[in-house]
Amino acid sequence: MNNPQLDKNGNLKHLLSIEGLPRAILTQILDTAESFTGVSEREVKKVPLLRGKTVCNIFFENSTRTRTTFELAAKRLSADVVSLNVGTSSQSKGETVLDTVDNLIAMHADMFVVRHSQSGAAHFIARHVGPHIHVINAGDGRHSHPTQGLLDVFTIRRYKPDMHNLRVAIVGDVLHSRVARSEIHALTTLGVPEVRVIAPKTLLPTDVEKLGVQVYHDMRAGLKDVDVVMMLRLQNERMSGALLPSAQEYFKCYGLTQEKLALAKPDAIVMHPGPMNRGVEIDSSVADGNQSVILPQVTYGIAVRMAVMSILAGNTEAA
């Protein structure tokens, strides 16, 4: 199968989704990220790998955290960084996606970090650009958010190094979540034996079992003896319409409270990709509790994005 993310030698050229990436590449990214965690703790939080390179963050959809961590990651690699909120600029004047990209290529951009509300947007741009340009998907529609999936498994590996002996539960709106899809692919590729999804039927894709997960509709049963609880953000706009009765009702059934968390293993960690809806999918006492690793996830996100960018930039074909 032709994988658009890999070059003819099987090296990572673009990062578009975790699906289809071999375990060796995921492991290389995580190991490299491990080396980068130390860089952010030094006096000079920078290495010279991407000196002279230009990284363009093009966000057709808003995201403060993802854009900021990509920006910091690129800066800590010594790249020059331009961040565009295209939603508020040219697109509103009618420019096409490829025109925006072509203009940035004309300014000698070397790497694009792309977020778009349409699934497949990053693939579309990757097919369009020349062989020396790299594309990173920073979230496309419901499809994929590979660096979030990677930083989540990186966080898990830091707290629970034996990935082959873990029970992980992903809780919430799996149906609309690109994060959940990326997490599931990353966990199964890295050999986590038991991945559970916990959600009401209306928030699960059909045939979700085919991704290799066990399905639970009862949160109490699903959380029993898990090592990791990964909460998903409930997007407020889903609340209206037929999918959910109300935020209060959702919190009662699928919100993570101390009492429900007690069903997991005593040393279980709690994760959330942010931004959190306190009191909707997670109780404040859990989000701020001592089992929460939500802020370390953000810190590790920078190291993981530095790893991805430096591996891609290193796999540039000679012009």
Partner: peptide
């Protein structure tokens, strides 16, 4: 490119 196996300093 990047060395396939880096270790933390």
């Amino acid at each position: 490119g990047l060395h396939p196996q880096t270790r933390p300093s």
